[in-house]
């Protein structure tokens, strides 16, 4: 029972991170391989504000979100949009985007190493046990999970109810037709990319309350987020959430029952199985 709850709680935070990546990939069509570094940057901000000013991570996210939004918007407009413009084919854009976002990820790691060195950073925030169904859990995990649920829910409502959300979903499903009905695709792509970055950074801030990170752990989270997005289906919010919860459960099971050193291997195995048997995602329809 405690494995299930721990797994679901972990998966909830993963969902937030993968949502960010999914927004970026689904709308802006750029697989952001620097996604994990955005997460680590968000985590670092939370760590820094906590150690320097005892500012609660739950407040820091209101600072992290707008900053990450602006930074990601600038990255998209200055660096990625020229690539979209010059690409002669989808394949070329894909290769350029892979190399560029890897490059940005490395630059981010390099900068973070310069600022804070290679040490792990962790802090103790709300690390008091709470009892749920007769078992103790870290309050920080529960709080992070609840915050993730609130943010995911808000995002879901916004995507399904608001005009801008509708336009964004239209681009994700049919970019060409979206253009025809008068949606400003380039502008919304930039916004979706920025929003995705903000969501991921917030996820990072939340995750830092209960996980220990260092400057170069980003790539692991990128891998996990990618596994979730592919499993859940590109542009599919519901699928992303289910996939994230599944991954959280799987990792917790493996960590508890076999070895904590095998969590990434388990995620990878899951990814391989998905690729072999359901490359269109858990809920996706086979298209071509």
């Amino acid at each position: 029972m405690d494995i299930v709850i721990t797994g679901l709680v972990l998966g909830g935070t993963y969902a937030l991170i993968a949502m960010g990546l999914n927004l970026q990939y689904g709308v802006a069509r750029i697989m952001n391989l620097a996604n994990g570094e955005i997460l680590v940057a968000g985590a670092f901000a939370a760590f820094w504000f906590w150690t320097a000013a005892q500012l609660s991570p739950l407040l820091t996210i209101f600072l992290v979100a707008p900053v990450a939004y602006v930074v990601n918007w600038l990255i998209y407009v200055i660096i990625l949009r020229p690539l979209v413009r010059r690409a002669k084919s989808r394949g070329q854009l894909e290769v350029d985007a892979i190399l560029t976002t890897f490059g940005l990820g490395f630059v981010a790691v390099g900068l973070m190493l310069a600022v804070m060195g290679g040490d792990y950073f962790s802090y103790s925030y709300l690390s008091v046990p709470v009892m749920l169904f007769g078992e103790p859990y870290g309050l920080n995990r529960i709080v992070a999970f609840l915050a993730a649920v609130v943010i995911c829910g808000a995002l879901y409502l916004w995507l399904n109810r608001s005009r801008a959300g509708l336009a964004i979903r239209a681009i994700a499903t049919a970019p060409a037709s979206a253009r025809l009905v008068g949606i400003d695709v380039p502008r919304l792509s930039a916004r979706a990319f920025a929003l995705g970055g903000a969501v991921t950074a917030v996820g990072g801030a939340l995750i830092s309350t209960f996980l220990t990170l260092d400057a170069s752990t980003g790539v692991i989270f990128t891998l996990k987020a990618l596994v979730i997005v592919i499993m859940g289906g590109v542009g599919d919010v519901r699928g992303t959430i289910v996939a994230a919860l599944l991954l959280g459960l799987l990792e917790t099971f493996v960590a508890v029952l076999i070895d904590p050193g095998l969590t990434l291997a388990a995620a990878y195995l899951l990814f391989v199985l998905i690729l072999l048997f359901r490359p269109q995602g858990l809920f996706g329809r086979r298209t071509t």
Binding site: V219, L223, G261, L264, A265, V272, L275
Partner: peptide, 27 residues
């Protein structure tokens, strides 16, 4: 396993492969 799929999948698959084998051997 991968070469039927698009390039992004291939990148992730190959990047993960080294980590996967490393974790399994360590274990």
């Amino acid at each position: 396993a991968t070469l039927r799929l698009s390039g992004v999948y291939f990148v992730i698959f190959t990047l993960g492969l080294a980590e996967f084998i490393r974790q399994v051997i360590t274990w």
